[in-house]
Design a protein around this nucleic acid. Structure first.
Lengths: 350, 350
DNA sequence: TGTCCAAACTGTAACGTTACAGTGATGATA
DNA sequence: TATCATCACTGTAACGTTACAGTTTGGACA
């Protein structure tokens, strides 16, 4: 505090290797910090000229609000938390969601923080942590269950969130989902149109909501086309590919083997294709496979697969949009989006 | 401040729906906030009994330090930023790094924030942003170049970071890398041992350090085995699979076609395998392909591929460890790790 | 008895921000 | 000319934490 009165000295500038703060700008413009703060956020009660001047100076010194200051004062973190299960083996998938969320957050004040958990722990842990410590303003979760404890918890706490997948628990909340019912239904009809009469489904694991949606669509397709079902038993897309392959192989070796397969993941479809070869059959001739794919890669590798695209980047964008709107206080019912399956793409009928 | 003296009232408790703070515990224990703060971090000058009592109460009320408060006061963010290129198409890869980093951060005070950028922007942008706004204590970057502007910038600013991939610019810094030289060298030797004499390399894009490492290893292998090279021209693993497939197809149709291929990504290997089929050749009989894979999936889908595993979860863990140590002031030279390629795994010689 | 020291604890200020309750001007109205 | 409203701006306090500079207590020592 020496040299108090030598007003030419540029104290308050970017000296001391410190970033400029509101104080810096206040000093440079001769205004009070409050005025500067309000001028920068275009609040009322500030003269037009003053606003311009303050904003100019702020740009010149490269002012960026200190997030910790804002957060401490306002309680707003400007953070969205994406809760992830790190045991996830499904291909590409997660990164596309992340990229979609990122893209949407890029033009917002929000930062994206990842809150991982492993299946060995309680899925509630990360959610509870974020809500209790208020380390984010909103949460995105996936692997949603029909009666989801996390959804109940966040709803009861009035904490903004969006889910990838629907629930069936009488609670309205923001969600984005892919229409797996329509996918499975169309898949069965496509197979039936190719003359396939005995079909099997490699579904998502039970417990998740989209397992039931997929099964229902599949069952609906069977009813509509009169095709019969061959069951893969307790085999789901989240299992190791080796296991899927073994189970599919034994099914394909049975007397009444399926001639059409519906699959909920590209990875699973690879395993099915491998099993078909193992069984000495030819994909596209003896058996057709309809699968979801999240990247063009699946069909590139196995052109004999029939594919339906599921856009996970879109899912990420929608989820980010929904959770931001929810933080803003929007009504949940307007924040529910269903992605319809794209066209069924496959090789010409063999 | 009414009812000052009715000491039975549990003011300062978790009332008002607010989280407990140091003040809460101070009130409950009858101590000062400073004492509570010091007791919780096991600082000197605090009695043993007091520490125990404070820690007990803290646990009982579920005290969690307010990150914004700590951050504002200390300047420490307790955040690690992972800078990602969201144009990345490579399979699975990114999520494994993220999971690896997450796993390592799980038992640390650090949160993981993702700072994405697209190739349309300057790769320096996200790095500059984090350093300027001090929105993290350390940065992890990938896609490292031999002379990397980001590395130079962070070094000059004394900002802690770790890179996935090495540099060659006379600056010591923390890094983790996969030994792509050894991979390519072993790949060529493996092919030569199978009698392959004319080899092509599908390499990482030029510009990145590991492009050169891979090329050098490949060239070394050629020299050692006396095999000749067939060039794929300007084709790299980051290009669309369709393009890789086309280019590989035209090379395979040339008179002096390669009988062995070395590939730096599983995705690329799929494209090569497809091209081999396009050319009417048989993988494993007419042509062998050695590729890196980041998940077992690659070889499951195409068992006729010869694979070498690259563990990206390990990379994530090492990078997190390195950047944390670097934040702690450790010397960069002790924070450089090289992952050696795993065993070459392939089908029996055909 | 007085001095000194260590141990154990405390109050104040500050990090950067914003909500709130002002304060002076200026000009319009009665 | 007094009153009142409006405009443009300001100071203070507080969010939760920790660094720093104390203060109190009790005992050891001369």
């Amino acid at each position: 505090m020496a040299m108090e009165d030598s007003s030419e000295i540029d104290r308050g500038g970017t000296a001391e290797a410190g970033r400029p703060t509101l104080k810096t700008i206040a000093f440079m413009t001769g205004l009070g910090v409050t005025t500067v703060s309000r001028a920068l956020k275009d609040a009322p009660d500030i003269g037009v000229e003053t606003k311009k001047r303050v904003q100019l100076v702020a740009r010149q010194v490269g002012y960026r609000p200190n997030r910790a200051g804002v957060r401490l004062r306002t309680g707003k973190t400007n953070v969205i938390s994406l809760v992830l299960n790190t045991d996830e083996q499904l291909m590409g998938f997660i990164s596309d969601i992340i990229y979609g969320v990122s893209a949407e957050l890029a033009n917002s004040p929000y930062h994206l923080i990842l809150t991982p958990y492993s299946s060995r722990n309680d899925p509630m842990d990360p959610v509870r942590y974020v809500v209790e410590t208020h380390s984010a303003d909103g949460i995105i979760i996936s692997q949603t269950e029909p009666n989801d404890a996390r959804v109940r918890y966040m709803s009861e706490h009035g904490f903004p969130f969006a889910t990838h997948g629907r629930t069936h628990m009488g609670v309205e909340h923001p969600w984005h989902d892919f229409d797996n019912h329509a996918f499975a239904l169309e898949a069965v009809k496509t197979l039936a149109a190719r003359g396939r009469r005995r079909l099997a489904l490699l579904a998502p694991p039970p417990g998740y909501t989209y397992h039931q949606h997929t099964r229902d669509g599949f069952a609906g397709g069977l009813a509509e086309t009169g095709a019969s079902e061959a069951s893969l038993g307790d085999t789901w897309i989240d299992q190791p590919v080796e296991r899927i392959r073994e189970r599919a192989l034994s099914l394909l070796r049975e007397g009444s083997r399926p001639d059409g397969l519906v699959c909920s993941s590209g990875t699973g479809a690879f395993a099915l294709a491998a099993a078909i070869e193992d069984a000495g059959l030819v994909l596209g001739r003896d058996v057709d496979v309809v699968t979801k794919q999240s990247s063009k890669l699946v069909q590139m590798v196995r052109r004999d697969l029939i594919v339906v695209n599921e856009d996970f980047r879109l899912a990420g964008r929608e989820l980010a949009r929904a959770v931001i709107a929810s933080i803003g206080g929007a009504d949940a019912r307007g924040l529910q989006t269903l992605a319809l399956p794209g066209a069924v793409e496959g090789p010409a009928r063999g």
